[in-house]
Design a protein around this nucleic acid. Sequence first.
RNA 1: UGGCUUUUAUUUUUC
Length: 417
Amino acid sequence: RRAATQLINELGAQFRWEEALEVLQRHPGGPDRYMYCAAIGAMGRSRQWEEALLLHEDMIGNGIYPTSVSFNRTMQACAKGGQWDKAVELLEEMVEEGVAADVFSYNIALSALEKGGQWERALDLLHAMPSSGVMPDAISYGSVMIALNKAGQPGKAWELLAEMKAEGVQPSSVVYNHLISACGRGGMWMKVYDAMAEMKRAGTYPDMHTYSCAIQAMGASGEWERAMDLLYEMQTKEIVPNTYCYNHAIEACSNAQQFGVAQQILDEMWTKRVRPDICSYNGVLKACGAAGNFEKAFELLEEMQSVDIRPDFESYKAVIGACAKARHWIKAVDIFRQMQDFGVRADIGTFNALIRVCTEAGEWLQVKKAIDEMDIQGVVPDLETYNLYILGCSMVGRHKKALWWMKEIVDNRMIPD
RNA sequence: UGGCUUUUAUUUUUC
């Protein structure tokens, strides 16, 4: 049975959950608790939360008592599958079955709630822990801090930091990193510095990940120059920025319409031998798009291909957007074709950009082609698409057709704006 | 006489 347990673990590590199940089910004499736990873990890894739940029930049905580990693994499978409600249910079930929930159990449930965007429930659960005799640790607080960051609750995030200090729990870097992100998201860039200072005072030194979060936070607050300062500051502290740090800086500049600086950062990545990835290029391309600099966009598109970075739909969308901004419908149609030739799937945003530039140019044949192509590819029009159709109708005085599109909007359960 | 079972990051549209 030990060998079988190990085999199941190995299959699980390789995401071969069906084979793991077979090993479990075909074992002579039936599986034991260890085999079940290994199999439940394997299901969790492969995102098979329903199978994990079934296995756990099966185990209990076969007269094997559940333990905290068997429950925790099942909860973790639900958490990974985005089933926070199932994870919480299991936590409650543990109490009913007389199995003591440990700090792992609570942390898995908190993480499930965080992933499900349930920050209020996460806070409640955190506060309910001591009355069950389990004290929250840095991981518990970390998970809730992530939830507060994702929910854009910087005020609550600071409250949580104060709370954990008062409880005598040493805040981890995860806690500070997400506090920093939360401040940036809320436009509170001054608080980013406060959080970093507080971190040093508490003896947790900012590392590369912290700077990555801080650079992103500055970008989110529209402070691209401060983002750049942080990118250089970290290097004076001999912390080498990775691709994420550079990408956050590019993104900060791109959103602030600083195309030139974004381009400089990309160049610097090459000179500093930090390999740019698709996000680095897409970030600069987005800035090109906003500036309507389609010549540069085409250059970048070629450059990325020459370094074996395959442009994706995001890249093409930015280039088509650049053409649209420059009102260059011929280039837009051209690049759209290239995209199709390379087998890159367009999304509704790409179609909208293409339809807009063709509509504004009065290129009705191209508009029709785009509409047909959308239909073929099964891309569903959104409100913006219908608005463009109506705009086109109004340009050529086809009021009846415009009304027909209005009806289409309502029929497709959308609210006309 | 077996179980490291829990938390962190980037690009998503045109007006």
